Amino acid sequence: MAVLCSMAASGRTAQDVKTAMSDYYPGLAALYGSKADRLLEKEFALAVSYTKKNTANSRSSKSARINDTSLPKYSQGGQSLAPSAAAIQQLASDVENVLFAVFDQRLIKNYGRESAGLRLLFRAVLGYMRATGRDVLDMGCRTFAAATGKHQSTIARLLPVLVSASDGILTKVADARGRNADVYVVQLPEKYRQLAKDLSWRKGKIFGLRPIFRRLGDTAALVYEAIERSRLSPTTAGIIKVTGYSRTAVDNALSSLVTMNLVYRSGRQWVINAGANLTALARRLGALEDFEQQIARHRRERAVWQAWLDRHSNRVEERDVYDPERDEYWSPPDQDLGWQYLHETA
């Protein structure tokens, strides 16, 4: 119902959901199975009713535009507009503002050493949101692992932490089932909208961990980003403040970046070397090969998992896949493949 409410709130109809279910919402297709024709219309009507009720209660305080270029939140007919590609990019930019202004420092304060992984994962989420043009993400742990240079088990541990720490920005709306990954929704809570509006959007793109930093490390990646995405070329003190790292850690990272000719110093300020080719450097250091090997390994592991599903599909009855009376999901026995394959998408 959470997924249906999200779709109803974005202006989709039950027919839209049925049409796109096999391509864009495989999780729903697996949940409903042969009951889609009988149940979907009824449950989507409940979702529309619930959404309209909550919209009516909050419209008076939420009808203002987010910023000068945003579309009105509500059409004249009262139903919310489906998010356009421009609206998704705008949402990503607003969330980036809040990430840099609030959450980076909050993660550093509350999670210490683990904060680097959480910050890079948050960036990977926004990067995939921009790339797919969707605020609903059904990426598996291995996809985020490749984007952050981490092992999938690390991502499986960090994702729930990030959902909790994001204060409503990242919300899990559906559990993984079979071939389908967990489903997450990115949104901007009301309490952060004024802050996002007050700050100008930052130049450049957002990344998880680019291949070159698999060799140089997370600290170097975040220091490089602090220079690259800064509104003004920062000093060393400014980088320390933004990244939350010690003076020694920042100096070591800057030394590595200078050695690779990625940054240079202009007076007291640090500047990105626009002529540096990060992909070529990554290939020279073997980091690109590591990235490609990780992708290849993930493909093999997905193939093994999908083959297991295909071999056992004739043994799975509908009640084994979905039982409305219990809040859990079917999974293969540990001795066959192990729990790590549960969160993978096709």
Rank of each mutant, 00 (worst) to 15 (best):
residue 61 S to F: 03
residue 293 Q to L: 13
residue 201 W to K: 13
residue 236 T to D: 03
residue 227 I to R: 04
residue 101 A to Q: 13
residue 298 H to D: 15
residue 265 R to W: 09
residue 22 S to H: 14
residue 161 V to D: 01
residue 182 D to Y: 14
residue 344 E to S: 04
residue 241 K to S: 06
residue 229 R to W: 02
residue 293 Q to I: 11
residue 126 L to D: 01
residue 211 P to S: 13
residue 161 V to S: 02
residue 40 L to M: 07
residue 267 G to S: 02
residue 346 A to L: 13
residue 311 R to K: 05
residue 191 K to Y: 06
residue 32 Y to E: 04
residue 242 V to L: 12
residue 184 Y to C: 06
residue 226 A to I: 11
residue 62 K to Y: 06
residue 272 I to Y: 06
residue 126 L to I: 15
residue 179 R to F: 03
residue 197 K to C: 09
residue 102 V to G: 08
residue 26 P to Q: 03
residue 272 I to R: 04
residue 39 L to M: 08
residue 190 E to S: 08
residue 75 S to G: 15
residue 23 D to Q: 08
residue 31 L to S: 08
residue 307 A to W: 11
residue 159 L to T: 15
residue 302 R to F: 10
residue 285 L to W: 02
residue 297 R to H: 05
residue 264 Y to K: 11
residue 144 F to V: 01
residue 6 S to E: 12
residue 307 A to S: 13
residue 121 L to A: 03
residue 316 V to K: 01
residue 177 R to K: 10
residue 203 K to P: 04
residue 28 L to N: 01
residue 105 Q to A: 14
residue 35 K to R: 09
residue 311 R to T: 12
residue 38 R to Y: 07
residue 116 A to G: 00
residue 193 R to A: 04
residue 313 S to C: 02
residue 247 R to K: 15
residue 180 N to A: 14
residue 189 P to N: 07
residue 42 K to V: 11
residue 291 F to T: 11
residue 215 R to A: 14
residue 290 D to E: 13
residue 339 W to N: 03
residue 312 H to L: 00
residue 85 A to H: 10
residue 38 R to K: 11
residue 165 A to W: 11
residue 81 L to I: 00
residue 343 H to N: 12
residue 53 K to E: 05
residue 121 L to F: 09
residue 228 E to Q: 10
residue 125 V to C: 06
residue 140 G to I: 06
residue 129 M to G: 13
residue 160 P to G: 07
residue 286 G to P: 10
residue 98 V to G: 01
residue 321 V to C: 00
residue 262 L to I: 15
residue 300 R to C: 08
residue 330 W to N: 03
residue 214 R to I: 07
residue 18 K to N: 03
residue 345 T to L: 04
residue 171 T to R: 08
residue 310 D to P: 00
residue 158 L to G: 00
residue 229 R to G: 00
residue 147 A to H: 01
residue 244 G to A: 13
residue 293 Q to P: 00
residue 139 M to P: 00
residue 210 R to S: 09
residue 268 R to A: 15
residue 179 R to G: 06
residue 341 Y to S: 07
residue 137 L to S: 04
residue 73 K to E: 11
residue 302 R to N: 11
residue 261 N to A: 13
residue 163 V to N: 03
residue 103 F to A: 00
residue 299 R to K: 13
residue 107 L to M: 12
residue 298 H to S: 05
residue 287 A to D: 04
residue 329 Y to W: 05
residue 57 N to G: 14
residue 148 T to G: 10
residue 177 R to I: 15
residue 21 M to H: 01
residue 309 L to Y: 11
residue 142 R to C: 05
residue 241 K to V: 15
residue 312 H to K: 03
residue 190 E to R: 08
residue 63 S to T: 05
residue 66 I to N: 06
residue 250 V to H: 09
residue 16 D to A: 07
residue 159 L to M: 15
residue 144 F to R: 10
residue 326 R to A: 01
residue 40 L to N: 02
residue 263 V to L: 03
residue 252 N to P: 01
residue 75 S to N: 06
residue 285 L to M: 06
residue 338 G to V: 10
residue 215 R to I: 12
